[in-house]
């Protein structure tokens, strides 16, 4: 069960990263990026790294996404 979940997360990781690069809408791209870091966080928990997982949630998932959204709202939303 854990194995399957692990591989599923890897697939989500790949899919979300490729989608974030491919999509034209920057806001969607940034939101996909949160999915990306979300699955990374789960993987870190699987890999027994709660410290890194916490830091990833608050820094990549929280602050960086916030900064991205601020930037997009101040610039244009489309590529």
């Amino acid at each position: 069960m854990e194995q399957i979940l692990y591989y599923l997360l890897l697939i989500i990781l790949l899919g979300s990263s490729i989608f974030a690069i491919a999509t034209k809408n920057l806001l969607i791209s940034v939101i996909t990026l949160t999915v990306f870091s979300g699955s990374l966080v789960m993987l870190y928990v699987f890999l027994q790294a709660p410290d890194v997982a916490l830091a990833e949630i608050v820094i990549s998932g929280g602050i960086t996404t916030g900064l991205f959204i601020v930037t997009i709202s101040k610039t244009e939303g489309l590529e």
Binding site: D51, V58, I63
Partner: peptide, 12 residues
Amino acid sequence: PGGGFTGGVILA
């Protein structure tokens, strides 16, 4: 788990 960095970000 946690520490100064994570806690600091939460405070921010």
